[in-house]
Design a protein around this nucleic acid. Structure first.
Lengths: 341, 341
DNA sequence: CTTAGCGACTCAAAGGTTTTCATCGAGGAG
DNA sequence: CTCCTCGATGAAAACCTTTGAGTCGCTAAG
């Protein structure tokens, strides 16, 4: 043995052991077709014998690829803490990116300082692409990212023009229709809606689904819906105010499970039985919430794991310069029945 | 202009513009003392004029440093979703590492598969070091990481021998004493404790603080405490069972805010007024929880942001081969009074 | 007057991989 | 038998930075 015992083996070592040149070894690692079966086998054997791991930096240097992608969240901090949805998205991202052997660089960008930092970082070529979670109307991140020559996939529709943007969205409108139709099919007559903040398109889409399933005009919408801000406390308050405004209501479609949990509290306080007096349908099907409310919550499932997985796949295609069939994907939503409706 | 207009400038370009050699320019960037003021200024001017950003890969190749550190969480998924504590830690990590210009590679490692992947990744030399959050008794991560020649800083004490390990812990025991003494100073006579799961040393330390402040023996501890598993639901159940066992209790020290929220629910259900009938002190001072319970929760503050910041600082010192004064740091905890006690 | 020492530089090698281009050998067509 | 073609392979350049060795002009010491 001539190799030093502690240093990590290089491609050179692998090639030597397999009795081929560095170039051939490299071709094997990159699955090039121009390599004989014998060579392939010899190299693979050497790789596993030596426990070889390619040196990322060297590879990055020549391919001009970093092997890392940024994951940007624009949400303000309190939301990130309170809403398990974000933890779920972060986890899904970590997993999906690890699966394709790409490093995830997590950036929480909210203050102007953060934005400047993000811009510097992204423009600095430290990542190959980005996944962006920025649902709000005034999210500066979007405009920062848009002018960079960097492949980006958005989660849901960002505000503003969608021309040429790559995104993976959930069928919010369809899910809302599903929820509302379900309530109608139960024979409920006075159905109201607790919406998300209307500076997010997902909230607007859900509102629109409710609106069309109920055949409402704008005036009707104004009377029968209330903004709950996608927070638990907001959901509680919105529910209370709807109860005051529409005392005879017998069903409510709430645009998120977290808000629905708040709404249930409000209903209990008002002495309403669920689902006997008021049927409740949530949105997200976040098990940690939906299965632990009383009663357990009927909810529209949007599969965040699936969404993130699609985003990663989509971004990888962009990075490989593959043509993507559809720039904008829509994932289906389904109704999950539990006891609240 | 001879430089191509689209390519990123290299150190060569900077050197040319500043009228020095590449070596000198490099020394300026790395703050070497062996460089004249004029050269320094010329290079800095060139850097900002060209908007130069060092190529990470090239630098990594020669320095044998990746500029990335791994952040490992061993917690099972439901916990990560439910407990805002983790979101907070993740966020703090992202921020602290970004501040020192290091990439954070987030790994959630729980299944044996995850462990294998983590081992491969860490052994592969893809990161310079690791921050490990693995509080449980049987966390395999710790043994995986321990045998790697990789600088590691732990959050809190991992289970097992602490010899030579680098860690930043909160003063759990001291905080527990603080909480208990506070309850005693309010004149409470029957004080009980909802503990965390006893396979975590932070939970054990808090329990020990309670034990010593109450001058209890093991039998006393067994009678006056109950494990709430660091979950909301667990806190609720533990409180109920303590109410059944010690009907005359007039105060409770709960080892986490999340559990305290559950305990408050249980107390309300039992018709107890807080703090009149039962005084409650939590632990964590997690504002998102503590400020929104009714009544707002008196709690022991442990500053997670600070803890993570210290961990990062500590790891950076290890990476620079600086000697660290104390391998194991302890951060103080303080009592934050609100209305529950 | 010679030489050692010093500070500020420059030169060039090294670091590990991918990829272009040239080479080599074998097999088929003429 | 010769000329081509084609597939597999190897040599070497390129990617960009850090860093040790060497250069140059100077001063201080002998």
């Amino acid at each position: 043995m001539l190799v030093s015992n502690h240093a990590r083996p290089t491609l050179e070592d692998v090639a030597a052991r397999a009795g081929v040149s560095r170039a051939t070894a490299s071709r094997v690692l990159n699955a090039s077709p121009r390599v004989s079966p014998e060579a392939l086998e010899a190299v693979n054997a050497a790789v596993s014998a030596l426990g070889y791991q390619p040196n990322r930096a060297a590879r990055a240097l020549v391919t001009r690829r970093t092997g890392a992608v940024a994951v940007l969240f624009s949400e303000p901090e309190p939301k990130i803490f309170d809403d398990p949805h974000f933890a779920r998205l972060i986890r899904a991202g970590a997993r999906a990116l690890a699966d394709v052997d790409v490093q995830m660089v997590l950036m929480l960008v909210h203050s102007p300082d953060d934005q400047a930092r993000a811009h510097r970082f992204l423009a600095g070529g430290h990542v190959d692409g980005a996944l962006v979670f920025a649902p709000h109307r005034n999210d500066e991140v979007v405009s920062v990212v848009k002018k960079l020559p960097l492949p980006v996939v958005y989660a849901g529709k960002p505000w503003g023009s969608l021309r040429g943007m790559h995104l993976v969205d959930n069928d919010n409108e369809g899910g809302a229709v599903l929820a509302t139709e379900h309530l109608k099919s139960l024979g409920r007559k006075k159905i109201v809606h607790v919406s998300g903040p209307l500076d997010e398109l997902s909230a607007i889409d859900r509102l629109n689904g409710f609106k069309s399933a109920m055949s409402l005009d704008d005036k009707g919408v104004a009377r029968l819906t209330e903004d709950g801000g996608f927070t638990r406390e907001g959901g509680r308050k919105a529910m209370s105010s709807l109860l005051a405004r529409v005392p005879a209501l017998d069903a409510v479609f709430v645009a998120s499970d977290l808000m629905a949990a708040g709404a249930l509290e409000s209903l209990h306080e008002a002495g309403k039985r669920v689902p006997e007096d008021v049927a409740v349908v949530g949105f997200d099907d976040h098990v940690a919430i939906a299965e632990h409310t009383s009663p357990p919550l009927t909810s529209v499932r949007q599969d965040s794991d699936e969404q993130v997985k699609h985003m990663v796949e989509h971004l990888m295609k962009l990075l490989r310069d593959e043509t993507v069939k559809r720039k904008q994907q829509m994932l289906p939503t389904v109704l999950v029945r539990r006891e609240s409706a």
